[in-house]
Nucleic acid binder design. Sequence first.
DNA 1: CAGCTAAATGAAAGCGTGTGCATCTTGTTC
DNA 2: GAACAAGATGCACACGCTTTCATTTAGCTG
Lengths: 346, 346
Amino acid sequence: MTEIPATRMARATAEMVAERANVSRVAVSRAFNPNASLRPDKRELILRIARELNYFPDRAARTLVSGRSHLIGVIVPDVCSYWESQEIDTLTSALQNEGFATLLFKTRTDYSMDEQLLAYMRGFNPDSVIAFVENVKPQILTRFLDRAVPIYVDYPHSGVASPAEPGPVFDRLNILQRDGIEQAIALLQGFGASRIAYLAGKTKSRASAARETMLRTIMNERGLAPPIQMAGDFGYEAAFQSTIDLFKVAGGADAIFAANDVSAFGALDALRHELGLRVPQDVSVIGFDDIAQANWKSYNLTTVKFDLEARVRALVRLILRRLNEPDSPGLEETLSTRLVVRGTVG
Amino acid sequence: MTEIPATRMARATAEMVAERANVSRVAVSRAFNPNASLRPDKRELILRIARELNYFPDRAARTLVSGRSHLIGVIVPDVCSYWESQEIDTLTSALQNEGFATLLFKTRTDYSMDEQLLAYMRGFNPDSVIAFVENVKPQILTRFLDRAVPIYVDYPHSGVASPAEPGPVFDRLNILQRDGIEQAIALLQGFGASRIAYLAGKTKSRASAARETMLRTIMNERGLAPPIQMAGDFGYEAAFQSTIDLFKVAGGADAIFAANDVSAFGALDALRHELGLRVPQDVSVIGFDDIAQANWKSYNLTTVKFDLEARVRALVRLILRRLNEPDSPGLEETLSTRLVVRGTVG
DNA sequence: CAGCTAAATGAAAGCGTGTGCATCTTGTTC
DNA sequence: GAACAAGATGCACACGCTTTCATTTAGCTG
């Protein structure tokens, strides 16, 4: 629950600190900038008095003159999505450690992003923006975020298109999906599964497409029939219904590979509580992400882990490097995946 | 998944708009302030040109001169907690509609809040702060948030202390827990439950204490024995373990009333998957909050609904009123609860 | 101690906006 | 048409800080 202080703040200024320390206002400014040259004892004195007066440099003024707000905008359709909430959580900690703060905005839940929101957000002067939205139109970006350097999430060797080479500068976050998915298929194959279904995410999701294509490739390499298609949208309800359809209308399957963990939960619940099937005895289920709930006893889900902390670290590294080197060519970070074996395959 | 544009922004200023519209810079400023007097056709022209140039007033400059940042700080120990993530989600939408933005900070997960974080946060000039933290020390508040007007979350008629009357000004959010809890007990009693356990939240949580005291009062009124005590911390794992203890070490119970939904999930999973009991045939379970997952088939939880949207609306109303009337005496909002019947009681 | 370099310092010029005040324009009334 | 009120307009300053730039001081070498 919550305690909530609402407040207006009456703050000390650099002027007051300077007066009390018998130095110039400029010295105070320098005391808070580690790179500025200032006699060490003087700096110490200033910082002590600043602490006494509870002084911190005003970000608004600092932003105005330096052009840096130390705010990172985060645009998200739905804070409650489990994966996204965990990413926001980790990201906020990481940014906080680097002297930044998270500025949160909501967009429509259909994963689109409109001009109005971008204009609104831009008014707050974020130094950088992270959008949990796929398929953003480039013209929207360039219209509102002049000089933007996008980070492109790429899935190498997945069959899903990489960004065109002769284009504007962009940074790149590579996600290697093969390891985790291959381990998953090997496990399923080891238990004799042959009819394997892929429970997709949103139709236009590149992440889901990349997972599916990689899955198809690996299954083909291993002599398995192509995956059975199941519609989904990364959500619980759609997965629940889609699983019922698979078994009542289509011919069922030995295993379901879901585009994310929440989908896998929907499939599990449909199998157990609606279709009366046993998991893993009758059907195996594998998820993707390894969110905290995957470890809850009700689900105890075998899933492809996509290391959240590593991902956030990579993201923050990319953002900070780009802020420091605005003109350098495309930066790059790479992440991998691996299978976490629990109780839904067997 | 994500697409991420990182950016520095080259923006139009009021000066440029003024020049292009053949008006003074002041006129541009007034065009964006609905209360300022400006000829309507002139305003229209300016706004049109502003849109062409993609101009918006710079918040940093505006903040500097007006003292209003339009940022609302939100301090939270754990963004992923389901209830809190839903509240942040709803809150962000509501603030966005009012021209504000959410500035997110993380504190330690032990629900404490330290001076360092407050000082850091204050540097960003939030107009107001919402802390999802209980038991904040008043001296910390007054040290960093001079002129703060806290919002006190009160549980009237619950037996848990209301704020001392002769103190500083504060606003108040009243939460009437009786309705929902009374309906829940009536339902349990109707099914013949007599041994009812209370699965508590964090030890020092006023919310949990208020729920427990209210529960005890109502059970007493209705001639039931006092609730059996179960330790918990609002989390899944603790609830899971505590439920096992209740049945393996202590003498079990007919029903478990949990301090929140996530605890109820832990109890449910322990009952079904670890203890081999049937819910609701052998044991009933009731939660508190009605988060989205409570409606998932695996849980299908009967729970006391605490209307999130109503709560957020009340919160935002309090904050905005307080910002507009800094000197008015204590403001007040009141919320109620009610039972949502699903499948875990019977 | 002279002569040099490097570090330390303060004055002043902004950064982009809102607002009080004085001035000018418009519209209304007799 | 004159007199007045009300509204529209622009100047200049303020907000709190960072950053040149020119100047002073300290540190070092021979």
